[in-house]
Design a protein around this nucleic acid. Structure first.
Lengths: 200, 200
DNA sequence: TTTTGGTTACACAGACCTGTGTACTTAGGC
DNA sequence: GCCTAAGTACACAGGTCTGTGTAACCAAAA
């Protein structure tokens, strides 16, 4: 009643399934047979839509490259909300780190033409620029530098959560971000609940 | 003249070579044949020293698990020197990220008994405790929390450098660490040279 | 000299991988 | 009814991987 019949194209079905399996299980760990079997199509069909596994991997990474939607909230709130969003994702049981970092870790040395790595770089840079522009709107002097530092907190908490599986890493990153923002002259509310840390 | 004859045991030779190849090329990308060939021994000999590739991987990770040596320098300097050391490692062309994070990214889903991941967790925690104890000596109130935040900066800069190959990530992390330390009441010198950033 | 322990050369099993070739089926548009 | 496009079933080539089995070799110790 709500949505029109999906009419999802075959290519999109393949990509969606490849995304799930590549991300959760690892790119090298998943063969094209597995992807085809999961959808219930023949391997031949998959290869009719993607000329090689590498092409599929590239499409997978491109698909993961989504820009944050513009928001009306004040910039400082947007920045801090990033870490709340991270904490939510960390708490989901299907979180397995940053797909771009994982891809570089898995495939880096044999990605000789840097196809995958360039996508990863573009993604990291786009997030840095997103931070930077928000910081500029806040009148921060060294918006470039602070933006870089914020991305370190984001990626640091992701790496730590990947290993430790502890969503509190996102909260720790948020606290640190608050300090860095305040130090740059941004007015920012204090940590929400008055309770101690180590709630979980 | 200086060193006595190495008499390096065969097991150690295997481990050393496995370390180099696993780290630089990736664990899944390197087969036991490749390791044996690199040393110039037969695959049989390798399997006489390690019952399986998994055992070799585990020994590789254990070997990477080294504690920082105790130092006489003041705690704050030790903490900041961590990032200088990182910057040096980033600048070496054979730096390929954190071996523990990479191992979890590569092998996480099939490491069902968590052998590899537990080593990674132990390593991350040991570094966090190292930070924490230094912070306690500095009289920092929330040494636990700040130590966690510092590990985020370390791992964040490692992940960013892995992707971007930009040693400046270590300097950015150091700047952020300085702000966090100052905010916790630690007296800390200002950034060394008076120049602007973006030196490279 | 004989024994012993580590090593070598080499084949092989069994599994998995990417990618292709081919002939068959099925559904829609004309 | 007929044609086309998409998908299917299935085999297979050629490569990789882990791990084992076996017989020969070699050096040092007894």
């Amino acid at each position: 009643m709500a949505s029109p019949p999906p009419k999802q194209t075959m290519k999109e079905r393949i990509l969606e399934t490849a995304d799930k399996l590549f991300y959760l299980q690892g790119i090298r760990a998943i063969g094209v047979d597995t992807i085809a079997a999961e959808i219930g199509i023949s391997k031949r069909t998959l290869y009719n839509h993607f000329p090689s596994k590498d092409a599929l991997i590239e499409a997978y990474l491109q698909r993961r490259f989504v820009q944050p939607r513009p928001s009306d909230k004040p910039p400082a709130e947007q920045i801090l909300a990033t870490f709340d969003s991270l904490e939510r994702r960390f708490s989901a049981k299907d979180f397995r780190g940053c797909p771009f970092v994982n891809a570089v870790a898995e495939l880096g040395p044999e990605d000789e033409d840097r196809t995958f790595r360039n996508i990863a770089i573009a993604f990291k840079e786009s997030r840095r620029l997103w931070f930077r522009d928000l910081l500029r709107r806040l009148g921060v002097a060294d918006a470039e530098g602070l933006a870089t530092q914020l991305t370190l907190l984001v990626d640091g908490s992701i790496a730590q959560d990947l290993v430790r599986d502890d969503p509190a890493m996102a909260r720790a990153a948020k606290e640190a971000a608050r300090v860095l923002l305040a130090n740059a002259g941004v007015k920012v509310g204090s940590p929400a609940p008055a309770g101690k840390k180590r709630a979980g």
